[in-house]
Amino acid sequence: MDLPTLWFLLIALLWTGYLILEGFDFGVGMLLFALGRRPEERDALVRTFGPVWDGNEVWLLVAGGAMFAAFPNWYASMFSAEYLPLLILLVALIVRVLAIEYRRKHDGPNWTTRWDRVLFVASVTAPLMAAVGLANVVHGIPMDAKHDFTGNLLDLLNPYSLLGGVAVLSLFVLHGATFLGLRTEGTLRVRARSLAIRVWPVATALVAAFGIWTLLGASSVARGISVVGTIAVVLAVVGLVATGLALRADREPIAFAGTALTIAAAVVLLFAQLWPNVMPSTDDPAGTLSIAETASHHYTLKVMTWVAILVTPVVLVYQAWSYWVFRHRISAEGFPEGGAGAALQSLTHRPAGDA
């Protein structure tokens, strides 16, 4: 395997990690008011991902950095063409951080409720813009032979990309609900499971429609149905079926694993249909960017590969350890008795003014 292809696959892996890990964060944010009927319950929901959300976002930073270093022309063309959706994504991520950090900086239900609303809006906006952006990359973007964007905002809001955005939102809601089934107890746990059961048919229908459309030819470059793409669709279906069955059998780990598998399969499908290009052109075929012509110099990719080999295991071990430390269930009544994890949670999320 040549280095450009290797880094194309690694970028797909980074996007998979980001969407799985940050996906349940976004899902919980979208469920704040659906499941948290009191401020104490919303506090508990935020605490489920409070210690790990910033580590999850690192995957997005690394994915963007890898695209910039490994495929600079791809990075430049994509950010130029999708400037507005990606700008909205960036603003939503920044505002989301403010909501998480500032919601408990002042005592009073009105202050917390306002920031919770901001968190909800940002949790909807960010994944929606990310999904629309990725869907447009697969579908194709109007570009001329010089790889300059020749379209407008309406070209980016095409039916395929909008379906992708709605499908991702529904899948993340389901993913967040299954995550809450693992991380909460009592009433919140019951509500999360009940909501997940109700959301499952809608998410399944939307994801299936988006997956079939992608497999049958969402891209402007005709290549036919790929074997890898077909396998990815099958795995997505397996994941959704497993989630539905596990929810009804009250098998929360399997339900969460099923939604995670579906997200991973969806990313594989998108990148499989994109290969060997990185950005098809819907305007001029000469404007289509391929992996080979957008890749950095061989030496650059070689250095990046060695850095990834040395650093990635350390990052994965640290992130796995953080999840293990904060593995205990959370309730709206207070912090659980669970040793070091509970103690660290109580220190990490101490309200302002108690220090």
Rank of each mutant, 00 (worst) to 15 (best):
G29S: 13
V202I: 15
L19H: 06
I100E: 00
G258Y: 11
T214D: 05
E337W: 03
A145C: 01
E22T: 09
M30A: 13
L347Q: 10
M129S: 06
T305Q: 12
L93G: 15
L174C: 03
V199I: 15
V207N: 08
T262L: 02
L180V: 03
T348M: 14
L134F: 08
S331D: 13
F335Q: 05
A205Q: 05
D250V: 11
A295P: 05
G244I: 09
L261M: 15
F49C: 02
P39M: 05
P51E: 04
N152K: 05
L188F: 05
L21V: 07
L206I: 04
E40W: 02
R189G: 02
V227E: 11
L247D: 10
L35V: 13
D144P: 07
L31W: 01
L9D: 04
D43A: 08
G339P: 02
A342Q: 08
T150D: 08
A343F: 00
T214I: 06
R189M: 01
E333K: 14
R96T: 12
R37T: 13
V62C: 08
A352K: 14
M129P: 00
T48S: 13
N158S: 08
L154M: 13
A122N: 03
I20Q: 13
W324L: 09
A130M: 08
L270V: 02
L84K: 11
W306K: 10
T282K: 10
N158V: 03
T243N: 13
L310S: 14
G176R: 07
A286T: 09
T300K: 11
A92I: 09
N56Q: 07
D107A: 14
T150P: 02
P351V: 07
T184K: 12
P276V: 12
I100F: 15
G164V: 05
R191T: 05
A272P: 06
P72F: 12
T113H: 07
F149E: 06
L93P: 00
L180E: 02
V307W: 04
I225C: 12
V241W: 08
M67W: 09
A257Y: 14
G29E: 06
L86N: 04
H328M: 04
L6E: 00
S219M: 11
R104G: 01
V138C: 03
E252H: 11
I231K: 12
F172Q: 13
T348G: 00
P285W: 06
S281V: 08
M30I: 07
R223Y: 10
L171D: 02
R37C: 00
S331P: 00
S123H: 01
A192C: 03
A265E: 06
V311A: 15
K146Y: 03
A232H: 15
L3R: 14
F149S: 11
D250C: 01
P39H: 11
T259C: 12
I11S: 09
L89P: 04
T48K: 10
